[in-house]
C-alpha cells in the first residue's frame, strides 16, 4: 500500500470516527491504533495527531483509558470503547455512509456528464 497523503482537512474530519472504530474493534494502545489506521489505507498518523484525538474522545466519554505494564518498556496506555462510544460509533458510521454515498453520487454523476 503506497503511503497516500490524503488532504489534511479530510483527515481531520474522518480521524476521530476512524480512531473510535479501531478502539471499538478491540481494546488497544496508541502505536497499534496508528498501525491499524495505516493498514486501513489512511496513511501514517503521527503521535502528535493521534493522542489529542484519543484525549478528546476520552473527554467526551466515548473511550476510557488505563495504564498497564509493558514488557520491559515504560508501560502502555490502553484505550477501550464505552457504551456511549459504541452508540456514537453506530450512529455516526451510519451517517458517514449516507454522506459518503451522497458525495460519491455527486462526483460520479459529474464524471458521467463529462
Amino acid at each position: 500500500m503506497p503511503d497516500e497523503r490524503w488532504p489534511a482537512e479530510w483527515m481531520r474530519a474522518v480521524l476521530p470516527l476512524s480512531v473510535l472504530s479501531v478502539v471499538a474493534a478491540e481494546e488497544t494502545y496508541g502505536y497499534l491504533i496508528a498501525r491499524r489506521l495505516d493498514e486501513a489505507g489512511l496513511g501514517t498518523v503521527k503521535g502528535g495527531t493521534l493522542y489529542p484525538i484519543l484525549g478528546r474522545l476520552e473527554d467526551d466519554g466515548l473511550v476510557s483509558s488505563s495504564w498497564r505494564e509493558g514488557e520491559g518498556g515504560p508501560g502502555r496506555k490502553y484505550f477501550a470503547v464505552t457504551p456511549a462510544g459504541r452508540a456514537a460509533l453506530a450512529d455516526r458510521s451510519e451517517r458517514w455512509a449516507a454522506f459518503a454515498a451522497a458525495t460519491h453520487g455527486l462526483l460520479t454523476t459529474r464524471k458521467a456528464d463529462a
Binding site: 496508541g30 502505536y31 503521527k46 503521535g47 518498556g73 502502555r76 496506555k77
Partner: peptide, 29 residues
Amino acid sequence: RIGEVLAEVDSHVAETGEDPRDAFGAPAD
C-alpha cells in the same frame, strides 16, 4: 492532563523508536 501527555510521549517513543520531535512536533506546537 500534563502527566498523561508526558507519559504518552514516553510510551509511544519507546514503542516506535521515533524521535519525539518527528512524532509529536515541536514542544510548543
